[in-house]
């Protein structure tokens, strides 16, 4: 067991390093030049020598220096604003974390509702199982705009600007949660169906157990592992989804920061965003792998 954990943690570190390196190389290879975009403006009146000096200031060290900096928590300086990248991340992270966490919880709730709902009812089953396909095919930006149209402009339930924090959170969370709930619901529903065909299910029924007893006490835990895997994987989509959601709803956060950094080709910020996203993703999936043997004792040996 400890051996398994050490191995998985080692793999996680390797993935992180690979993500960092790939991002570093890609950002270096990107055409265009953030320093020229920002400093070549004739109004600033900088001479080519001065620009070269600025460039030296930002580029100093190269790959190894950047790696060491990241290991010490020093992510460098934003070219766009000149402030430390850490500061900019610290501003956005709590906002995005709140959004993502709420969206994830909602997505799981929706998925459980759809999957278990379909396992209970005969008549609604077909309808419920069609829902995930619908959800997954809805583009996030379109859903966001649609929700604003309906709830803010038509029904006037949620103010577009201002309002309480909760009111500000409702629509973005919904926008983000809906497409993410779809794959979780699909895998969970399939898992439930598959577990229901196993021979131990009629044995439980022969003990006199009700449908709910069978579903919640026996089927759920058996159907969980594959669902957990998918839930870990879609966690990555939360980060991608937050870029669009935060832009559509005009919220501050990592997603918004990413969007601005892309426009300005602010490579230090982009690199930091990639590393933070990769870290979260790797940690979540590590957690999933650690949970597996807890859920299924057959894997513990």
């Amino acid at each position: 067991m400890t051996k398994y954990l050490v191995k998985r943690a080692g793999q996680a570190l390797l993935v992180l390093w690979a993500a960092f390196t790939a991002a570093y190389i890609l950002l270096q290879a990107m055409p265009g030049d953030s320093i020229l975009i920002k400093f070549q403006n004739p109004e600033l009146g900088l001479s080519p020598e001065q620009i070269a000096k600025i460039r030296e200031y930002y580029d100093a060290g190269g790959y190894l220096h950047t790696v060491l900096g990241f290991l010490h928590g020093d992510f460098g300086y934003s070219i766009d604003t000149g402030t430390p990248v850490v500061e900019r991340l610290a501003e956005g992270l709590p906002e995005t974390a709140r959004l993502a966490a709420c969206a994830f919880v909602l997505a799981v709730l929706l998925a459980v509702l759809i999957a278990f709902g379909s396992a209970y009812s005969g008549r609604l089953r077909g309808l419920l199982l069609a829902v995930p396909s619908l959800f997954v095919s809805v583009p996030v930006f379109w859903l966001g705009i649609l929700l604003i149209q309906i709830f803010s402009f038509r029904l006037r339930l949620v103010p577009v600007i201002g309002g309480t924090e909760l009111q500000q959170l409702v629509l973005p969370v919904l926008t983000l949660a809906v497409p993410i709930s779809a794959p979780i619901a699909q895998v969970l529903a399939r898992g439930i169906d598959q577990v229901l065909t196993q021979p131990f299910v009629p044995v439980v029924a022969a003990k006199g157990a009700s449908r709910s007893w069978i579903l919640w006490r026996h089927v759920a835990r058996n159907a969980l592992p594959p669902t957990l895997t998918v839930a870990g994987l879609v966690f990555g989509e939360l980060i991608a989804g937050s870029v669009v959601t935060e832009t559509v709803f005009g919220r501050n956060g990592i997603g918004r920061l990413t969007e601005q950094a892309v426009n300005a080709q602010d490579t230090p910020v982009l690199l930091a965003v990639v590393v933070v996203a990769a870290t979260v993703f790797v940690l979540v999936n590590l957690l999933v792998d650690v949970l597996f043997p807890v859920l299924d004792p057959r894997l513990a040996t």
Partner: peptide, 13 residues
Amino acid sequence: LVPQDPSNSLNPV
């Protein structure tokens, strides 16, 4: 009820 296949007739978890 005593079922047919003891290997799959108990909840594995």
